[in-house]
């Protein structure tokens, strides 16, 4: 995800309040400019929000949202008591945590190492190449994963040199395998891209600090730990909170492409479960909408939580 930060709303200067008539006269054109976007948002974002009503219905596509029978929370009871729900939750949380730890630290590490390189040209080339994979599509990344994790693939070969049995790793239904595959394909695709902002932040650290520390006898490693990392801490915290907010939404299409019936038990997450209930072989729209709503609520809660965290820790907030 790209880094983005809206200006904090609270500090915006309060507008000189014009009476409505004058405001419309002066700013009417602005509202006209916003109108198409408003239509877009209403049609493709706000109207579907009313569709969550399906989650409380015994939905029948011929009767529509308003004609179907209202059954209250039955879909949710089915969802939470279903035999796969526990597994799905475990997988969702497990993969999210891996992404929040390994996946989060990787770009910072890369940036720290990159900034230790004195040869400008080497640094530049390395940086450019490492963020190229960001432009490789998810579909292709999944294909690459298939090639390299197959029985004769490069990664399988490397792993077998370490003593692990040769196999098609993607078909391995044991626990951490799929999770790690998911995590490492993410890392492959996003580490270089994610490190760009950290490299910029590290380059902006005051050189005098390093110089003073070096004169006092601090080695390179010591300076990284005591100067560089504390200096970029606000940025790390901001990126972390941004990531917490979106962690459950990510990875959907990759998992959809990489998992197979054999690995459903370790790979199924809420979003893929929602998808299969709506477009899979055993269709249950009500259940799908219920799990979609559940996911949306969790994501919203996380986003609000992370934003509150952000506000407290760094004085910046998304909203």
């Amino acid at each position: 995800m790209y880094a983005q930060r809206a200006e904090p709303m609270r500090s915006a200067r309060s507008p000189a309040r014009l009476p409505w008539k004058k405001d419309i006269k002066r700013n009417g054109f602005l509202y006209l400019l916003y109108a198409p976007t408003l239509c877009y948002l209403v049609i493709f974002h706000y109207i579907p929000m009313f569709g969550v009503a399906i989650a409380f219905e015994d939905f029948n596509i011929r009767r529509g949202v308003f004609g179907s029978r209202w059954i209250g929370f039955d879909n949710f009871i089915d969802l939470f008591t279903g035999e796969t729900f526990g597994l799905v939750m475990r997988n969702t949380v497990g993969m999210a945590l891996l992404n929040l730890t390994i996946g989060f630290i990787a770009p910072i590490l890369l940036a720290l190492v990159l900034c230790e390189v004195r040869n400008k040209r080497f640094k530049r080339i390395t940086q450019t190449i490492t963020y190229m994979p960001f432009f490789v599509s998810t579909m292709v990344v999944c294909q690459l994963a298939r090639f390299f994790l197959a029985r004769e693939g490069g990664v399988t070969l490397l792993l077998s040199a370490l003593g692990l049995p040769k196999q098609n790793w993607l078909a391995n239904p044991n626990l951490p395998v799929f999770w790690l595959i998911n995590c490492f394909t993410d890392i492959w695709q996003g580490t270089g891209y994610g490190s760009i902002v950290y490299v910029a932040a590290i380059s902006a650290v005051n050189g005098d600090l390093h110089e003073a520390a070096a004169i006092d006898g601090a080695g390179r490693f010591r300076r990284i730990v005591s100067i560089t990392i504390p200096s970029i801490k606000p940025m790390i915290i901001m990126m972390l909170t941004l990531r917490v907010g979106t962690v459950f939404m990510s990875g959907f299409d990759k998992i959809l492409l990489l998992y197979m019936p054999r690995t459903y038990d370790v790979a199924d997450v809420i979003s893929t479960y929602t998808y299969r209930m709506a477009f899979g072989s055993s269709i249950n729209y009500g259940l799908s909408a219920a799990s979609g709503l559940f996911q949306s609520l969790v994501a919203t809660a996380l986003l609000l939580l992370s934003n509150a965290m952000n506000r407290r820790l760094t004085a910046y907030s998304l909203f």
């Binding site: 109207i47 929000m49 009313f50 569709g51 399906i54 998808y275 729209y285 909408a289 979609g292």
Partner: peptide, 9 residues
């Protein structure tokens, strides 16, 4: 923050 989800969309 909030989306209707797959089926409603």
């Amino acid at each position: 923050m909030f989306s209707g989800g797959l089926v409603p969309s």
